[in-house]
């Protein structure tokens, strides 16, 4: 798969989730079971730099979501 397709898969998957707007890196790894996690995190970080995704952090843990989706500053999603 090329990088553009990977990005599309990520965006479509996130858009498909109705109740959640914030995700752990692990959720992205699960979209690419064949890849090394560190490749996936590089891709995610690239998408943040491009303005497609954004970080959301408690200061302790970081979560990632579609840019502009969901609450911008609120309590952390507590489920695992």
């Amino acid at each position: 798969m090329g990088a553009e397709e990977d990005k599309k898969l990520i965006i479509d998957t996130l858009k498909g989730k109705k109740t959640k707007t914030k995700f752990y890196l692990k959720d992205f790894n699960n979209m690419f079971p064949e890849r090394r996690p560190r490749e996936v995190s590089k891709l995610v970080n690239e998408m943040v730099a491009e303005g497609l995704l954004e970080y959301w952090s408690t200061g302790s843990t970081t979560m990632i979501g579609l840019k502009g989706a969901g609450i911008q500053h609120e309590t952390e999603d507590s489920d695992q």
Partner: peptide
Amino acid sequence: KHGGIAGVFGYG
């Protein structure tokens, strides 16, 4: 509130 999206460009 605990957390948010504050940050600088390019850094997480």
